[in-house]
Amino acid sequence: MNGALTVMRKDLVLLWRHRSGWLSAATFATMSVLTYSFAFDLVTDDVRPLLPGVLWVTFLFAGIIACSRSFADEVEQGTFDAMLVAPIPRSSLYLGKAVSNLAALLTIEVAVMLMATILFNTTLLTAELAFIVGVGTVGYVSLTTLLATLGSRVRSREVLLPVLALPLLVPLLIAGVRATGGALDVPNGDGPWLLLIVVFTIWSAVGSALLFPMVVEQ
């Protein structure tokens, strides 16, 4: 656990110092929500049925941008190997990385939801929505962190990560959109969608932690 905390603290410091990674993701998310708001303004007065899709698609792509650099910089500087020769369990390394990615993405998501609340004139900062987005993000980051590791030694990693991640994230996307719709009183939002998010998150977190040691072996 100490190893995971050490890695997480270091990653958070690096996230702050080397802002280009998560600022790119934040800029993308901001522009995305802003563009949707202009587009929807022209065609409908009630944006609530569309909002869940806007939010989750924005979260997914912003997350891909934020997570893709998390291991790439380590591999480029050789520090990933320096961590791999340290006597800490591989799972601690994974946990530290995943938690720092989670912190970055949750920050972006809160900003997006604040902005969407203003632009779409709909209350999004509720406890129910926070729970749905929070749990879903844990599952999302767990899987994306593993896949970012897998692609970190490949030259075309920016392309590889979405190609690998998005098909696997489809169940989470569907459940996230439906559950968010339910929280916004959109028709067809009822159903065991929150349960599906929780199951996906457990599967993703446990599976990724178990697979990580194999992924980093050469």
Binding site: K10, V13, L14, R17, H18, Q77, G78, T79, D81, A82
Partner: peptide, 11 residues
């Protein structure tokens, strides 16, 4: 110790 220093450049 390798020929690459394996250090964090932003630290």
């Amino acid at each position: 110790l390798g020929h690459r220093p394996m250090l964090y450049e932003d630290l």
